[in-house]
Simulated assay, not measured.
Amino acid sequence: MDPEIDFVTLLGQAGTGKTLLTLAASLTQVLETKRYSEVIITRVTVPVGEDIGFLPGTEEEKMTPWMGALEDNLDVLNKPADTDPAHSGQGQSGGYGGDWGRAATMDLIRSRIKIKSLSFMRGRTFLNKFLIIDEAQNLTPKQMKTLITRAGPGTKVVCLGNIAQIDTPYLTEGSSGLTYVVDRFKGWPHSGHITLQRGERSRLADHAAEVL
């Protein structure tokens, strides 16, 4: 949230809330304080299992299947604070405006989020944007440099990742672009690094992250 910080690396095991916290911070600064004009999200498209092949559609439509975490977290951010009518005092839909109000809010949020493919980043310059690089552990140092150097005046870049979940076959914890930038930006006064320790997804997810 600090406007003096241009670059942030956010690490943590699965379920620690990296995407949720970053989305909340970015949308607050886009929709409320209007420090940035929009949120841009990108990630490398490395499948966990078998590749499903060619995806039809526009750039954003091709990226949509890779952005399940975005959809999940937007649902969390947009859900009513209390869905129990006995406690909310606003009827069965909970909260002012009910379902239509939440739908309108979601439409507004979606209009300020752009999903971009890593493949089309070369030559771009992002002015006054909040750029989120998701699954950054799967990027090479060269890819990371390409993305970060897209940042123009007024742009903040946040890299999210979990070094323990590298899916790119030829990358290791030591050669990952995420490890590289954490080390290279160490000590720069306009950068910050955060490591989240506690899982928030479920006790099953926490235990699996520890023992598997």
Score class of each variant (00 low, 15 high):
N138V: 00
E50N: 06
L171T: 01
G152A: 04
S37T: 12
M121S: 10
E60I: 05
E135L: 04
Q137K: 15
Q29T: 07
I40Y: 04
L178W: 03
K18H: 02
Q137D: 06
E71Y: 13
G94W: 05
V158Q: 03
S191I: 01
Q29Y: 03
Q143V: 11
I5M: 04
G101N: 08
I166L: 03
E173C: 04
T33R: 13
K62I: 09
L204K: 15
Q197R: 15
S37A: 12
E210N: 14
D51Y: 10
G15C: 08
Q90A: 13
G154C: 05
D2G: 01
M106P: 03
P47Q: 10
M63H: 13
Q13C: 10
V211I: 15
F185W: 15
T16M: 12
L131F: 09
V182Q: 05
I133R: 09
S176V: 05
L27Q: 10
A208R: 14
L196N: 11
L147Y: 00
R150Y: 04
T125N: 07
E50T: 14
S88L: 10
T195Y: 08
G192N: 09
M1W: 00
C159A: 15
G187D: 07
R112V: 03
T42V: 01
I113F: 05
L11V: 07
V44K: 15
I40E: 06
